[in-house]
Design a binder for these strands. Structure first.
Lengths: 112, 112
DNA sequence: CAATGATACATAGCCACCCGAGGTACCAAC
DNA sequence: GTTGGTACCTCGGGTGGCTATGTATCATTG
């Protein structure tokens, strides 16, 4: 099932931060990882993620460094900053509040 | 806590359809109801919802009729169509798939 | 060895859409 | 008579996801 792109908005940032909270990664790796872990439900596009990574770096939430080319492939590896960790906590909480609200509304008046 | 507006995207349509699946309502009523049920977590704006209702009506998912004015207040009451019910089922399933995917990713590799 | 496809980065432009601001109209309260 | 609630509506700006395109390297396949 394809998820409407509108739903993706707002979820990208916390997911990116969460992945980098696990360990340092490069962009393409995150795209493939999200795709794999969700069995293709979330199909991230390069044109979406790379600008996001640049934005997060500009905001000081992540840092990057070019890795020495492996097999002729250059990779930019991203790390989560302390500020990024704080942001992750906040975004995660926002996501919980949001998703619980939507679940409540979709469940109907019985739960309200 | 204010939910970033980006998160709202994609959730509005299933919520509108779900509310109208409960019972017929008018637009302003839905705005206040969502606000109340989520304790203000989802703060719907008129500039967002009215265009959505017009879109859904144009797509045949809902119908509308002007109610006889009560206390000088005119209300446009919306009903869910059969097509709207089908759309609601699909959008709800999409939401579940999406939210479970995000939860999985935010939980980290232990669940993957 | 040419073409395809995966890896890995990047950006420009299109288009969808949320929201602030503004507008109309009626009523109650102070 | 001004404020604030109800109840509808629309325009314009800004944000941002996605398609398309580009560069470069490597493995695979015909």
């Amino acid at each position: 099932m394809a998820i409407p792109s509108e739903l993706l908005r707002g979820s990208i940032e916390p997911i990116l931060l969460s992945l980098l909270n696990e360990r340092a990664m490069h962009g393409y790796e995150m795209i493939k990882l999200v795709n794999a872990r969700t069995s293709g439900a979330l199909e991230w596009k390069e044109g979406t993620i790379y600008p996001w990574l640049h934005r997060l770096e500009a905001d000081g939430l992540i840092t990057s460094e070019w890795q020495a080319p492996v097999d002729g492939r250059r990779r930019k590896v991203y790390h989560l900053t302390r500020q990024g960790q704080r942001q992750l906590a906040q975004r995660t909480q926002e996501w919980r509040t949001f998703s619980e609200s939507v679940n409540l509304l979709l469940a109907g008046p019985a739960s309200a």
